[in-house]
């Protein structure tokens, strides 16, 4: 029983991190039809910028803020310099975002050095609780809570605010949104920056969780996020939460029971989903 609970907590924590990464990806895709292969680069930039400023300032909160700011700035740059010039050309978009991913990843090594960086959990969140036989690691609970708070915030923004309404409308029909007098490009930029900030935040939260970060992390996590976006349905925000938790849980259980299969299982799920339900598990087919 205690094993199950700790595996669930593990899975949920990973799931929440993937959700942060995937939610930005899915919103950007849904609204702009851009599959941003550089998304993982923002994850790893958030992690490094955050961790270095956390080490420098000694404050985890400063680290988180710097990570978010990094995400916003990089999101702005990416949208303006990388996405806009090839907007509407699918092949060019795929090619260019992958190229940018490469540059982002290598830039990490130039700016922060090529070595693996060790990260400690902030004191307040370090350690664990013991409930009977069960050991609960505090930082994991923190991630789960944090993740749900972000989900709640995003959900509120999407359903209760005007801009959220516009984003949802834009996902369904962006031409019509423009014809109603809304500058969709500005909305694109806002969504892109938000998505990038979420990715960067995920990177920063992930750093103490894994204890070490390195430049290639971005690509590895991005693949997880892609899987989640596919399973959850491209453009579906709720879908990405469910799928992220599913992937997180599957990963954590598999890693324990069948470690050989752990990475494979997610990819196999994705392949199966793509082949039989390309619109994703959690979205209804649009007619």
């Amino acid at each position: 029983m205690d094993l199950i609970i700790s595996l669930v907590i593990n899975g949920l924590a990973t799931g929440m991190l993937i959700f942060l990464l995937a939610s930005g990806l899915t919103l950007i895709f849904g609204l702009m039809h851009v599959l941003n292969f550089a998304h993982g680069g923002l994850f790893v930039w958030g992690a490094y910028a955050g961790v270095f400023s956390y080490a420098y300032s000694g404050s985890f909160i400063v680290g988180i803020i710097v990570a978010i700011l990094t995400g916003l700035v990089f999101g702005f740059i990416t949208e303006k310099l990388i996405i806009t010039p090839v907007y509407g050309n699918l092949v060019q978009q795929i090619l260019i975002t992958l190229g940018f991913m490469l540059v982002l990843q290598e830039m990490i090594k130039v700016v922060f050095g090529p070595n693996v960086v060790a990260v400690k959990v902030p004191e307040l969140l370090a350690g664990s609780w013991q409930l009977g036989d069960i050991i609960i690691i505090k930082y994991r609970i923190f991630i789960i809570f944090f993740g749900f708070i972000i989900f709640g915030l995003l959900h509120y923004m999407l359903t209760r605010t005007k801009i959220g309404l516009i984003v949802r409308a834009g996902v369904m029909n962006s031409d019509m949104v423009q014809a109603l007098g809304i500058n969709i490009k500005r909305i694109f930029l806002v969504v892109f920056m938000t998505g990038s900030a979420l990715a960067a935040l995920a990177g920063m939260l992930f750093a103490p969780y894994s204890g070490a970060i390195y430049a290639e992390l971005g690509m590895e996590f991005a693949i997880m996020a892609f899987i989640v976006v596919v399973i959850g349905g491209m453009g579906s925000f709720q879908g990405s939460l469910f799928a992220a938790i599913l992937v997180g849980l599957a990963g954590s259980f598999m890693a324990y029971y069948v470690p050989y299969l752990s990475l494979a299982v997610n990819m196999i799920i994705m392949v199966v989903v793509l082949i039989f339900r390309p619109q994703g598990l959690f979205t209804t087919a649009k007619g």
């Binding site: 599959l35 292969f37 693949i223 892609f226 392949v271 793509l274």
Partner: peptide, 27 residues
């Protein structure tokens, strides 16, 4: 299996399958 999908799905899927093969080779 994959070429019927739209190009971004295809790109993603080939990335994943090739990633899978890499994992298999490493294990």
């Amino acid at each position: 299996l994959t070429l019927r999908l739209k190009s971004h799905f295809f790109a993603m899927l080939t990335m994943a399958i090739s990633g899978l093969l890499l994992v298999v080779a490493e294990k």
